[in-house]
Design a protein around this nucleic acid. Structure first.
Length: 481
RNA sequence: GGCGGCGUACCCAAGUGGCUAAGGGAGAGGUCUGCAAAACCUUUAUGCAUCGGUUCAAAUCCGAUCGCCGCCUCCA
């Protein structure tokens, strides 16, 4: 298995620190607002990575944190006129609601910054003792100059950053690059007692404290959005390695952004869609499929057109499942290219694994899935019969379900998919309405009254229902795309 | 200004040295059908931003040019 490591800038063979065991930490969200679709991408990417590692048999410990104290939360509390911890609670619940919809599993441990104040203070104290940090007026700063490897993750050196001259200059700091480990409380702000007086943790230190506590001083994978590389992860490395004297993380994994009109989707630009807005119009499976159809490190352009294509693709998948079910209930009486289909079936899993093993290439993996689907449809078209055909088709179905479980898509029945579509497409008809229409039309067709028959079909089409006449009856589906 | 990434068909998107450049969507033609839909078949890049170079061999490596984007400030 190979993973792209931001630290080295290369795809590397994945060799965990302890054989068979993987410790992974992913930066979660700051709970001060509703999540947008960019948060969904990060969560889904690492959800798939998490599922694949488990599927491959690793004993995985997955930690994803919540930042539940921070300037943005405090500001939000003022704005909403509620206590800061209620803001955190409210948006943590919103996060869970959105992520549950999207099929993002809970992490094994989901620590919160405010539950680790003791550990944070311990580390800050240690950093002062070791001479990496200093206190000024109740705040503690990490002294970047004391850590020679500073910049190794984001591939930049201090002087370059100074040249940018966008670094906030705080007169109290020894150097503009120094960052806060502990912030002295200004009046009225939430605070905790510390050796330096009342205050609260800086942003970066919480991840050091929580990851070290739950995963140890060195662990395998640390993930997050690419925008966290600098300064957040760079600072984490500095303070963690300064504190422990050990390498902090072996593989740094970062997902790319979602863009709108080629520009990064972000709060500050205001060009974002919330998860809730998107889920009002598209099924969660569509969103998940869409996000997995591009490699996780590439930018992905958010558009209705692409979401619709994802919907069409998923519908194609479930249509094939229906055909497979039909095969088992009705059988065939012909036979076709059994050998060639057998080859496709037998080589599929290897291809899927190869794709996922190569830096979690979900886009390629989906390509293989759709290749299998096309071949399965082709085989079914040949009206196969006999035990061999049954076994092949049965195996196909198992393979589709197994790989679908890894990606956590394609895990419903075609009926469930159809009902979900009725809901997201806000189709007013009930299933019974549709069945009644089909029956009426069937009677017209018996009479060979094609005009009446076509009228009924057209009427349903206008309401978003497509009819499909088959040998032994008429099926129906929701119009997609 | 510094650092990094990207540019593959009408659209999306895999592919980072070597068989006919995956897969999906859209278009065109066909099989099937009362007609459709679905499914399948054929078709749409002698070509991978441009120009050079390395190599027996390059979309893939190197250099230059053009275009787009990201990070350097909170950000997934």
């Amino acid at each position: 298995m190979r993973i792209y490591n931001t630290l080295t800038g290369e795809k590397e063979d994945f060799i965990p620190l302890t054989e068979g065991r993987v410790n992974m930490y992913v930066c979660g969200v700051t709970v001060y607002d509703i999540c947008h679709i960019g948060h969904a991408r990060s969560a889904i990417v690492f959800d798939v990575i998490q599922r694949y590692l488990k599927y491959k048999g690793f004993n995985l410990m997955f930690v994803r944190n919540f930042t539940d104290i921070d300037d943005k939360i405090i500001n939000r509390a003022k704005k909403e006129g509620i206590p800061w911890d209620e803001v955190a609670k409210k948006y943590t619940e919103e996060f869970y609601h959105d992520m549950d919809s999207l099929g993002v599993a809970r992490a094994d441990i989901e620590p919160k910054a405010t539950e680790h104040i003791k550990e944070i203070i311990e580390i800050v104290k240690g950093l002062i003792d070791k001479g990496y940090a200093y206190e000024i007026n109740g705040s503690v700063y990490f002294e970047v100059n004391k850590f020679p490897e500073y910049g190794k993750l984001s591939k930049r050196d201090k002087e370059d950053m100074m040249a940018g001259a966008r670094v906030e200059v705080d007169e109290r700091k020894k150097d503009p690059m120094d960052f806060a480990l502990w912030k002295a409380s200004k009046g009225g702000e939430p605070s905790w007692e510390s050796p330096w007086g009342p205050g609260r943790p800086g942003w970066h230190i919480e991840c050091t404290a929580m990851s070290i506590k739950h995963l140890g001083e060195s662990f395998d994978i640390h993930g997050g959005g690419a925008d966290l590389i600098f300064p957040h992860h760079e600072n984490e490395i500095a303070q963690s390695e300064a504190y422990t004297g050990k390498p902090f993380v072996k593989y740094w994994v970062h997902n790319g952004f979602i863009t709108i009109d080629k520009e990064k989707m972000s709060k500050s630009l205001g060009n974002f869609f919330t998860i809730k807005e998107v889920l009002d119009r598209y099924d969660p499976e569509v969103v998940r499929f869409f996000l997995l159809s591009t490699h996780y490190r590439s930018p992905i352009e958010f558009s209705d057109e692409q979401l619709k294509e994802a919907e069409v693709s998923i519908d194609r998948y479930y249509t094939t499942l229906v055909r497979i079910a039909d095969f088992f209930s009705k059988g065939g009486q012909g036979g076709g290219a059994e050998k060639s289909f057998e080859d496709t079936v037998n080589s599929f899993k290897g291809k899927f694994h190869a794709a996922m093993d190569d830096d979690f290439n979900t886009a390629l993996a989906l390509g293989h899935i759709f290749e299998l689907i096309r071949e399965a449809n082709r085989f079914l078209d040949s009206k196969p019969s006999g035990r061999m055909a049954s076994e092949l088709i049965s195996k196909t179905k198992e393979l589709l379900l197994e790989t679908g479980r890894v990606l956590n898509i394609f895990n419903r029945t075609p009926d469930e998919w159809r009902r979900a579509l009725m809901k997201t497409k806000k189709i007013l008809l009930t299933e019974k309405d549709v069945m009644d229409k089909i029956k009426q039309r069937e009677e017209a067709r018996q009479r060979k009254d094609w005009t009446a028959s076509d009228m009924i079909r057209k009427g349903l089409d206008e309401k978003g229902i497509i009819l499909e006449d088959k040998k032994d009856g008429t099926g129906w589906k929701v119009k997609v795309g």
